[in-house]
């Protein structure tokens, strides 16, 4: 399960997000005051409560991007279901990928409470307008990638998601609580799969190191741009949607991961990674933000492939969705006739 700390505008949404517009009338001003008071008191906003347009738009964008990430995230791991090295690993991977589908559904449902239909959101994804986590636009080249996705990608996602359980929007917070409960299995199964590989042959160990080398920096980028370059973060914090800044979450992740890498016996590919006694944190090197933005904007190695696969699955499933509706209509007509 995976969020990227998206302060990233969707294709056409850039102009629509001018934070809070000036309240139009005295009534709106009163509603705004009430809303602000609830947020200040760390209260919750529920679907039918009044909320500023900007709050609604930000949530729809963030929750739907989050949902899309779950759904697209099924693809790189799904590729390995048929090639998992044992029946045990295959069963685990199927369960994990099924979880991701479920997480996508919890999140789509939460976004729908804001008045956006499922079809609208899917259209946003399939047309390429809506973003999803850039990490899935990289290929999964060997079996160790599956372990590394669990350990690092899900690990980074958990860091992002735990504070979201306290998000001010009730349905999003409740969905995240459900997700986080299931998430720990994802990270642990990945780490354990890597532990097993690290007890194997030199080639197997090299596969793990190779996967870590390819994924490490991309995982750090998952937390989103540095605080100084995240103007939307401030508004997200004000609204209680975001609780901890991108850089703080990233630091927490690095601090948690370094000792795990040591136990595993792999090297994190950063020569600048050093314990800083004064800060009591690990220092780390420069993240390549140009690459991050290139991938977010559609130019990663797998952007086209992921989207094509997703659209194809949706289109080829159309007859199933239509047949289910036709069946339901027929059953209903039959029941009415019998009752008559």
């Amino acid at each position: 399960m995976y969020t990227q700390s998206f302060s990233v505008a969707d294709g056409e949404a850039k102009s629509g997000l001018k934070a809070v517009a000036a309240p139009a009338s005295a009534e709106d001003a009163a509603l705004q005051t009430h809303f602000d008071a609830v947020i200040d008191a760390d209260g919750k906003i529920e679907p039918r409560d009044w909320m500023p347009d900007g709050y609604r738009k930000t949530l729809v964008r963030q929750i739907s991007q989050h949902a899309h990430s779950e759904i697209v995230g099924m693809l790189p791991e799904g590729n390995w279901i048929s090639r998992a090295p044992s029946l045990k690993r295959k069963a685990i991977l199927i369960a994990k990928v099924q979880d991701e589908g479920g997480h996508g559904l919890y999140l789509y449902s939460a976004a729908e409470t804001l008045g956006t239909s499922r079809d609208q959101m899917l259209d946003g994804l399939h047309s390429g307008k809506a973003k999803y986590s850039s990490i899935f636009n990289y290929p999964t080249l060997n079996w160790a990638d599956v372990g590394v996705i669990g350990w690092l990608v899900d690990g980074a996602a958990i860091m992002n998601q735990i504070p979201l359980c306290r998000c001010s929007y009730g349905p999003y917070a409740r969905a995240m609580i459900r997700v986080c409960k299931e998430e720990s299995f994802h990270q642990r199964q990945g780490y354990e799969a890597l532990l097993v590989m690290m007890q194997g042959t030199a080639e197997q160990k090299a596969m793990v190191q190779d996967a870590v080398n390819r994924y490490w920096w991309k995982c750090l980028a998952m937390f989103g741009p540095p605080d100084a370059d995240s103007p939307n973060s401030v508004q997200g914090m004000r609204w209680g949607i975001k609780r901890i800044s991108n850089d703080d979450l990233r630091q927490k992740f690095v601090d948690a991961t370094v000792p795990q890498a040591e136990v595993l016996g792999v090297t994190l590919p950063d020569p600048d990674l050093k314990w800083n006694e004064a800060r009591s944190h690990w220092d780390y090197g420069q993240i390549d933000w140009d690459e991050f933005w290139a991938v977010v904007n559609g130019n990663g190695p797998c952007n086209k492939e992921r989207l094509t696969t997703r659209v194809k699955a949706h289109e080829q499933g159309a007859w199933v969705r239509e047949a289910a509706m036709a069946h339901a209509a027929k059953q209903q007509a039959r029941n009415l006739k019998e009752a008559a």
């Binding site: 559904l105 919890y106 449902s109 459900r178 969705r321 289910a324 069946h327």
Partner: peptide, 11 residues
């Protein structure tokens, strides 16, 4: 505990 889309009650 949440909501979902389905074609009928059994589904």
């Amino acid at each position: 505990c949440g909501s979902l889309h389905a074609s009928d009650a059994q589904h």
